[in-house]
Design a binder for these strands. Sequence first.
DNA 1: CTGAAAGCGCTTACAG
DNA 2: CTGAAAGCGCTTACAG
Lengths: 337, 337
Amino acid sequence: MAMTLKELGRLAGVHPSTVARVLNDDPQQRVSEEVRGRILALAREHGYQPNHLARSLRTKRSFVIGTAIPDIANPFFAILFRGIEDALAASRYSVILANTDDEPAREQGSIDMLRGRQVDGLLIATARREDPTIEALVATGFPFVLVNRHTDPIPPNAVVPDDYAGAVAAVEHLIGLGHRRIAHISGSDEMSTGHTRRGGYLDTIRRHHLPADPDMTVRGNFREPGGYQGMRQLLDLPQRPTAVFAVNDLAAVGAIRAIEEAGLQVPRDISIIGFNDLSAAIGAARLLTTVRLPLHNMGKAAAAHLLAQITCDTVAREPVVIPVELVVRQSTGPAPA
Amino acid sequence: MAMTLKELGRLAGVHPSTVARVLNDDPQQRVSEEVRGRILALAREHGYQPNHLARSLRTKRSFVIGTAIPDIANPFFAILFRGIEDALAASRYSVILANTDDEPAREQGSIDMLRGRQVDGLLIATARREDPTIEALVATGFPFVLVNRHTDPIPPNAVVPDDYAGAVAAVEHLIGLGHRRIAHISGSDEMSTGHTRRGGYLDTIRRHHLPADPDMTVRGNFREPGGYQGMRQLLDLPQRPTAVFAVNDLAAVGAIRAIEEAGLQVPRDISIIGFNDLSAAIGAARLLTTVRLPLHNMGKAAAAHLLAQITCDTVAREPVVIPVELVVRQSTGPAPA
DNA sequence: CTGAAAGCGCTTACAG
DNA sequence: CTGAAAGCGCTTACAG
């Protein structure tokens, strides 16, 4: 049986509301030192822990944030989530996590569940560019922020990577190395990340008047097997690319596997560049040239953005676009002669 | 403003308790079809979601489980946690996660925070063999289960890998390949996993009358850099081992990196075996011989064990020991002549 | 079949 | 400086 204010009041011989005042350090009204000391001692002795449920019901603030994530077992989202949890814990918030496996019905179900649990706000990493669930959420005025992926057009309550600049930097790096047949293993066009990176790739190819052969873009899925399959397709082309921009590191790792299986070498025969820089998490990406995204920081920034919205009751005016940075390692090199 | 029972009652022209009865499908007392239909329609129309806070306060069941994890960004714990979340979600429980970074003070703080939030039980993946925080928790009678790591001696409310059998199988595999100088890169002896695996290694070495040189056990830390450093130590030995049992896959990957950096080859010069089988998560472990632990299932089993304890109000009589299985891949081979 | 009331453990405006 | 009361949104035993 957990200790309550009422019981503590009984033991101290005072009214429960007096106990509440000293335990909450109520700035309005002073309590005599004698009573305060007695209560504090009793609370410590019995290890009193306030019941957050009751407090939340009364104050209408739960200090819990809900997070919808495609899959916490994916290292990308695990690191993002760690950033979120770190920032939230520092502000005394807790987080309830729901995995959606990128199924729209589960995104909807998770958001309903989380709101039923009276979370103070939502961090959503599952947005598709067209997302009726999120459109409906906007209409309710409930506080939330989109992280990593945004709906179209980008709303002010979003914290996302600079996908476009990153894609441009990646492709220009390859062009700078002399490559002209540059392919792209894309993600899904339903997500802003996949769509924007593909756009950056295409624009850069065209701006440099390189061949924009439709065969040079193959569809992956943000995961290792998608990169592997995509690369196999590219290797089967009559004229294969000399360089590939993969939508993320996992796809790049899959592509490298396909290349090595085909008896070719990276970067001697084909250069590969990824996106995110998960080298610290996935050993296979240790030597990968990539576009570094400060993932843990992006999580912290998203949490901060949401807390600002909740506590200041203001709506953000601008999305936060996280800068990315080219990291040249050993998977890219000069175009073969 | 969220819809409440009271408001719904007002709209339907009935008492709030009647609304509660139909929405909760109260089996005790029947409600007329007419009233029931009216209420159901209204609830749907207004998207009524019950307030879990209020319900939990009243019923003293929050349907929330607290989980203490060293670091969700570590793929091992991310996969374990995914199993936990899957099992919990299937039973309509939510989970609040706290990262402790293996700091005892944060384990204590997390458990206090979680209990303050009135979770129905705790899943603890941060136990040390001697753990005053957990000892104190036992004394309170609060429901919890230890997962992956246990306090000593192993309590009934634990779900852990068969560390001992796995270590024995790993070392016997190496012995079967003809190795006699077999080293161990250990984890920490403060954790049951590290301690038990080291015990299994030593016992097996001795049972087969192989040299049990103290230099053959080096201390790692369950992570890649620990494996790397440990292997460097082993390579510096006057007589280096021909095979190494690493406490887990991450350490094994680090060991392989050290071996390759030294210009040697796996398994031609040195065989390496890991533990866990994270090959699906970390590409670098793709070809690693290891002891497979069904991690996702262990998470599910731990959650089930806890839910049984909560709903049946019975205390488990036996710990659950998850069987492990040797997976032979390409990092182990015959001892060099 | 439905209403009225009590109470979960807090917070907080109102008295005195 | 402290008490008494109301109320957050539910559930549930008690009436009728």
